[in-house]
Design a protein around this nucleic acid. Structure first.
Length: 483
RNA sequence: CGGGGUGUGGCGCAGUUGGCUAGCGCGCUGCGUUUGGGACGCAGAGGUCCCCGGUUCGAGUCCGGGCACCCCGACCA
């Protein structure tokens, strides 16, 4: 149960986040360092993310499968850049059944290698392509510094893995799935993400190119909320994923991988939450409408509950997720605060006056106080509630978009101006040559990194001077402090 | 893995200077009165004081060593 108050965002955003994740019953710490217990309410939210993505994966022709948790250590070593990237954060099993294993087993940090091994077996001909696979799984990375949902040693995610006949097809798949992520983030999670390409420094270990959706949190820090990689032929060559083309010649496949994790839950919390608690987008909210019955004397109870029992089933039949809070030991005021902490988009109050007037009170989570509360006739309630939920969904996206846009600044020419922006915890959009030295310098000077070269370039076709070194730059990139 | 902080009923804390029956608020259980923005009364339950070792007649308190978590950095979905 939630307690009174959380640390205000303005006072300490980090504490606000950890307070709220626990008070809203999303997750708890575990006895194992860096791991978390996802509580039922948090898991329901994750299920919403999962279902929204899974639906889209299937609509784009992907099939789910499952690959083992344990990967032979030698597999990780087959792709040079990949092993270098992941070696420091591997958990390795060396003993099984009381005996030292002949070959240690790595607990998967990601599954490119073992899926590569399987693809090699499955693919012979161009007729087997494209192969479009996704898996929902847990992975383990030995992180030094962890935070609930944002970075834990074990996390849940999906990882898509596909194989194609050509570079172009693999690139098209990479971009398609980035688009799927953006569509989910914007339309379901109400997070106005920016799609872009990662710099070489920020690229996935073993990829030709990495793309991401980047979101701005309420403290203006950037959160990479999903990634899509064109792996080129790197893994195909390491695992001999080959097919015979229509000229009967042996070719290496072109593969992709893409993932979204439980970090998305953290993104939802930090994009929409306020000092009263979570604010969940209706499309993902485990509870869309909470009903709070109100009665003073015992003789009022009957008529009120009767109205509740009459009004709720049509809402449920309409597919609206409704919860009736009939706890009789708590006052209505307490319940209001309690459900606000949990981010329920819409509260439906019904008391003796409503029974008399054939009305209900609806209070919107996204508009605080009296302005967000109104009385509506019981007739046509399903349509009223639907309209309200749609309005809340749209408003959360609008608020987040406005917030983001007021903290984004195009900076051209002056490196000092550029530093001022990112050191002031805002995002700078500037010409960037993409060089490792430049990236390193920004990191040293401002503790910030490049987030991406946005697909949507503000000055397409033009060139500019890199904000850092002054050299020629073909594209502009976002720079920001990041999680 | 560096720097800082914190570990005492479920949660938040006091008690440590000055050694001996461990306390407060919230929550929890029961009963009654309440209920349109965090209700109240009465009666209860609940604690290896993070762990191990040491000093002492006696340790929540002093000493040594661990561990965990939080915050700030270096590395990362």
């Amino acid at each position: 149960m939630s307690q009174q108050g959380v640390t205000p965002q303005s006072e300490d955003f980090s504490r606000w986040y950890t307070d709220i994740v626990q008070r809203a019953d999303l997750a708890d710490y575990s006895p194992v360092r860096g791991c978390m217990i996802i509580k039922p309410y948090g898991y329901e939210l994750w299920e919403g993310v999962r279902d929204g993505l899974d639906r889209r994966f299937k609509a784009t022709g992907h099939k789910n499968a499952y690959f083992p948790l344990f990967i032979p250590e030698s597999f990780l070593k087959k792709e040079a850049e990949h092993v270098e990237g992941f070696a420091p954060e591997l958990a390795v099993v060396t003993i099984g059944g009381g005996k030292v294993l002949e070959e240690p087993l790595v607990v998967r940090p990601t599954s490119e290698t073992i899926i590569g091994w399987a693809f090699q077996k499955w693919i012979q001909s161009h007729r087997d392509l494209p192969l479009l696979i996704n898996q929902w799984a847990n992975v383990v990375r030995w992180e030094l510094r962890t935070r609930l949902f944002l970075r834990t040693m074990e996390f849940l995610w999906q990882e898509g893995h596909t194989a194609h006949a050509t570079y172009d097809e693999a690139q098209a798949e990479t971009m398609q799935m980035l688009g799927v992520y953006a569509d989910f983030a914007i339309n379901d999670a109400a997070i106005p993400v920016i799609q872009g390409r990662k710099s070489n420094q920020e690229r996935f270990a073993g990829a030709l190119n990495s793309f991401s959706i980047e979101a701005m949190m309420r403290d203006c820090k950037a959160l990479q909320s999903g990634t899509s990689h064109n792996l080129g032929q790197n893994f195909a060559k390491a695992f001999e994923i080959q097919y015979t083309d229509d000229n009967n010649e042996l070719q290496h496949c072109w593969t992709t991988s893409w993932g979204v994790s439980t970090r998305m839950v953290g993104a939802i919390v930090m994009t929409h939450g306020d000092d009263k608690g979570l604010r969940l987008p209706p499309r993902l909210a485990p509870i869309q409408v909470v009903v709070v019955p109100i009665f003073r004397q015992e003789e009022e109870r009957g008529p009120v509950m009767e109205a509740v029992e009459r009004l709720v089933p049509p809402l449920r039949d309409a597919g609206i997720r409704v919860h009736v809070d009939d706890r009789d030991n708590l006052s209505p005021g307490f319940k209001y605060n309690d459900w606000e902490m949990r981010g329920v988009p819409l509260r439906l109050e019904i008391g003796p006056k409503d029974v008399a007037k054939n009305s209900v009170a609806l209070a919107r989570r996204d508009i605080p106080g009296k302005e967000g509360k109104g009385f509506f006739p019981q007739d046509g309630l399903v349509e009223t509630v639907r309209a309200q939920l749609d309005a809340i969904q749209a408003n959360l996206l609008a608020q987040a978009t406005e917030f983001r846009d007021t903290h984004l600044h195009e900076v051209i020419g002056s490196y000092d101006d550029f530093l001022t922006v990112i050191q002031g915890d805002e995002w700078a959009l500037s010409w960037f040559c993409g060089g490792a030295d430049c990236e390193q310098r920004v990191k040293a000077d401002a503790q910030a990194v490049s987030r991406c070269f946005p697909l949507d370039q503000p000055h397409p076709g033009e060139k500019g001077a890199c904000i850092i070194c002054g050299g020629e730059a073909d594209e502009m990139a976002y720079f920001a402090k990041a999680y």
